[in-house]
Amino acid sequence: MSDLGRLSDEDADMLAAEYALGVLDNHAKLSAERRISMDPTFARAVEAWQDRLSALTAEIAAEAPASHVWAGVARRLEAPGNVVELRLRRSLMVWRGATAAAGSIAAALALVVAWPRPAPPAASPVLTARLAATAKGPTVFVAFYDPGRKAIVLTPASVNAAEGRSPELWLIPSGGKPIPLGVAAFESSVQMIPTASMIGVGAGTLAVSVEPKGGSPTGQPTGPVIATGQLTNL
């Protein structure tokens, strides 16, 4: 993140213009995208430039695509791999915000509560993720985010308990280190309440690893990852 240093307003606006126009090389482009996800003022400057330049698209004649194009979209929406997309809402501000140093969020959980299975997630979860070993593999865990409780509930679907071990849920931001979300269980739903501000994490992956009982001793995954699901960003 060293390339995300401070810029003067003028330089930031020029970078926004260059990004919106598309003249940056790949490295600078990726850096600008990181800035967009972390700096709302910069994100708005990019949108303002996209707005200014988009008038050029008026020179492009509209053309109806062939009907098979929508059919392809609809088919891919139903593909199993797509279920893993987390559906994030704006009410989910706790998930956005600035991730402080990812490593320092070992204290991400204020509370871990376990209750016997089957535990239907209360209220209406707005965010769900199917976690599986492979895109087409059987569901291993299901994650819900309950905005009422600001809690994540991880429920086992088909997973074999490992004696003396605990499953642990992680959020892996794109290009970042895994952030521990909490220690779950193989045989019951576990509710976790992240307290750390996770703002700015943007896109990332949810993953469950198998750790020593009680969770990873290091704050980073130490055991095998048995399921992942994609978190896509806002």
């Binding site: 695509p65 194009v69 979209v73 891919r76 997309e85 994030l88 896509t232 960003n233």
Partner: peptide
Amino acid sequence: EAEDVLQDVYLTIWRRAGS
């Protein structure tokens, strides 16, 4: 190519409409 990208665009809209 344009059809392929267009499908990708709508799948992205599906995932990112919240933004």
